[in-house]
Structures are given as C-alpha cells and as structure tokens.
Nucleic acid binder design. Structure first.
Lengths: 130, 130
DNA sequence: CTAGTTGCAAAGAGTTTGCATGGCG
DNA sequence: CGCCATGCAAACTCTTTGCAACTAG
C-alpha cells in the first residue's frame, strides 16, 4: 500500500482504472504513460505492489510468451468468476447465480473449494462466436 | 512432431509420462534428467515442440515468478475440466457430469463457449481442506 | 526534515539461437 | 549418407536491484 501519492503513481493508477480487467503488458503500460515520464522500474515496482495487495492478477500461458497484468477492481468482482475471451481478449464477469451454481457443484460433486479470485475461465465470448 | 527418437527425447518423454498434469519447471526437468546428460536447450526445444502440438500447457501466474509446464496426456482429458490445488499443486480431473453441467450453464446463461483445454480451475482440494 | 519513490544503469534470471558436432534411420 | 537433434556458449528479453537524487507530507 502506497504511502506517498506521487505524480507517477497517480498516472499509473488512473491508467489501470481506465482499463480494468484488461490484459496489459508492463511494456504497454510504460508506453502509455510515456508522457508522464514514468520509468520502467517504477512501473514494475508499482505492479509488484499491487500484485502483492491482490489488486492485480499476473498471467502468462501457452500460446504467447507475454506476461499480462490485469487490474481487478477489488470488491466489484470478488463474488463472481471471470471469463476471458481468447479471441478479443476481453474479460467478462459471470453472473452471480451461475457463479454460485458452479461453486456449489464443485464443492458437492468434487469436494473442491474453488478460488474465485485466481480462476479465469477461457473460451470464446458471445460476439466472437460468429 | 519428432522425426528422430533420440536418447534424450526418449528420456524426456518418459519423464513427462511419469508426471502427467504435474506443474514442472524447465529447471526441474533438466535436473531430473541429469543422468541422461540432457542439455537445457534440448529441454526447452522439446518443451516448445510439445507446447506447439498442444500436449503441454505452460502456465505462470500471481504468487510465483516460476513458469510451469504441465504434460497433459492428450485424449484422456479432453472431455473434462482441470482442477488445480493451490496447496499441494496436484491436478484433478473433474467428472464428466460436472464438466458437462458447467459447460452447458456457461453456454446458456452467459453465451460463453468455454475452452476445456485452456481452462484451469484453482482452489483447494479435498485433502488440503483440513 | 524524513522517509518513501523515482530514474538510471548495472545485474540477474530464464529462455532462445547459431553453429559445429554427433547420432538416427 | 543425409538430415535432424544436441550441446555449448553467446545473445536476448524481461525483470529486479543498488544507489543517489528527488519529493510528498
């Protein structure tokens, strides 16, 4: 948790708030904040801080060597599961009833306590299915 | 797809087959095959090949900087979802009925076509819940 | 004034690649 | 014998770190 609100941190945070749930690379963020003269190290340090606070999800997987950071607007989505479209990259929030159904089914049928924050379900969204 | 069956590749593949669905680092694999005198580059090259063939899942996420490779024994688990325990690291295969239920629910309630190969559900398994 | 934050450049870690050598078929 | 795979070391890229300078409170 930040103690000083510097110009760089302010820019960094407001950029993330404008792109919630969007998979961003460290490089992308640095580029976007070029006008604010933020350094790569500051970006990484801030990313690490947020990751430690659990406000950012870091992901990398098959198909791309890139590492993505996703700003997850805290409370808004602690109750739901996240759906990520492999085509457009957008993230969707699963409705509460569906989420509950899955959580319950997993608990009952598999005795598995799902972690809603960590899990991301991949697939193809409505719009990209055409 | 391999054209020659070399001693190193044979050792590499049989090691993976002994550790299906287990999250392994490239370093770990190299260490384990030390007696076979396999080089790091050979390990990486073989990992890349399998990843391209879709036989290996590469994953890295918040909480650890490590990159894990998981050998997914092809056909055996194309029909089910994977559960990964955050405590013991083991992977479990979700039963077909439960899987079907989730797939269907996602399709109906969210119009989202889940990709069973890419998705991994994180949480805590039965044994680790105690 | 004091302590947290930044920028820079150097250090690190993990992964990839070029090239000559060696081995499978 | 011809081509693929390997090993080695160098090259790369991304990320982390040390340190001095800066700045918010």
């Amino acid at each position: 948790m930040p103690k000083y609100i510097t110009k760089q941190r302010k820019a960094f945070l407001s950029y993330l708030e404008l792109h919630p749930d969007e998979p961003l690379t460290a490089h992308q963020i640095t580029e976007a904040l070029q006008s604010e003269n933020i350094s790569v190290s500051a970006v990484y340090r801030n990313l690490c801080d947020l990751e430690a606070e659990g406000k950012i999800r870091r992901i990398s997987r098959s198909g791309s060597r890139e590492v993505y950071y996703q700003y997850t607007d805290a409370d808004a989505c602690k109750a739901c599961l996240h759906l990520s479209c492999k085509k457009c990259g957008k993230t969707f929030h699963m409705g509460t009833p569906s989420t509950r159904l899955i959580v319950q089914n997993l608990a009952e049928a598999e005795e598995f306590a799902i972690d809603k924050t960590d899990t991301v379900i991949y697939g193809v969204c409505k719009d990209c299915q055409k």
